[in-house]
Simulated assay, not measured.
Amino acid sequence: MLKLDTVLQGKQARYGEIEPIMSEHGFTLSGNWEYEEGMFDGILNREGGETVYLRMPFDVISGTLEHPDTLLAFGQPFVIKHVVNVGLDHDESALLASTGFDQFQKPLAKDAHIEKKTKWEIRGEEKVAEMFGDHEFIHS
């Protein structure tokens, strides 16, 4: 995992204002969110069985997650790499797994070693700045 230094950390925004930006840039609410915390996930790179994600964690300050008026406070974004087995599988999801699209396949490594760390730190930080650098509704 590579922790990033970005403009987003420590900032607050309403879910209804932030979600369309996330969605526009290919980020989704992580599937294992809680009512008091969660993270937005986006793919920086996918090659073979390796996927490099940019994750933006947040805490719910007030409201209920997924409600437009819910206030979120962002933590420190980070980059993480998952490695999955894209070889042939002998069960009913063989086609999905062999093409790398089996969303339910468990990663072989959830926090795999990231080579070229500086490259991914820069890409992650640039992506956050691109998405949020000029938005006035994001405040401290």
Rank of each mutant, 00 (worst) to 15 (best):
V79F: 06
I43H: 03
L72W: 06
G31T: 12
H67C: 02
E24T: 04
E66T: 15
H25M: 08
D102A: 07
E17V: 02
F78W: 06
T51A: 08
P68V: 02
D111T: 07
L8R: 00
L96R: 00
K81F: 06
H135A: 06
D91T: 10
S93L: 12
M1D: 00
G10I: 02
L71R: 04
G49E: 11
D41S: 08
I114S: 13
Y15W: 13
H113K: 15
E115N: 04
P77R: 13
R46I: 08
F58R: 01
M39G: 02
R46A: 15
T118Q: 15
A97V: 04
A112K: 07
R123A: 15
D41P: 04
G49A: 12
E34T: 11
G133Q: 07
P57K: 07
K116P: 01
L96E: 01
I21P: 07
G133T: 03
D91R: 04
E50V: 03
G31R: 11
W33D: 01
P77F: 13
T28A: 09
G133D: 14
V79S: 12
K11Q: 04
K127R: 12
P77K: 10
A109G: 03
R46F: 04
F27G: 12
T64R: 11
R55H: 07
F74V: 02
H67G: 06
A13G: 09
L29W: 10
K110H: 05
R55G: 00
K106N: 09
G10Q: 00
P77L: 06
L88T: 01
L108R: 01
G31Y: 08
G75M: 12
K127C: 11
A94V: 06
L71C: 05
R14H: 05
T118E: 15
D89A: 12
G100W: 09
T70C: 13
E37A: 12
L71V: 05
V86M: 15
M56C: 10
E121T: 02
G133H: 10
K117A: 09
L96C: 00
H113L: 15
Q9E: 10
V84E: 15
L4T: 00
K106G: 08
L54K: 01
F137M: 14
F101Q: 11
L72E: 02
G26D: 08
V83W: 01
T99V: 02
H90E: 08
K11C: 04
F27A: 08
A13K: 03
K119M: 14
A129M: 13
P77C: 08
G100S: 01
V52G: 07
T64G: 09
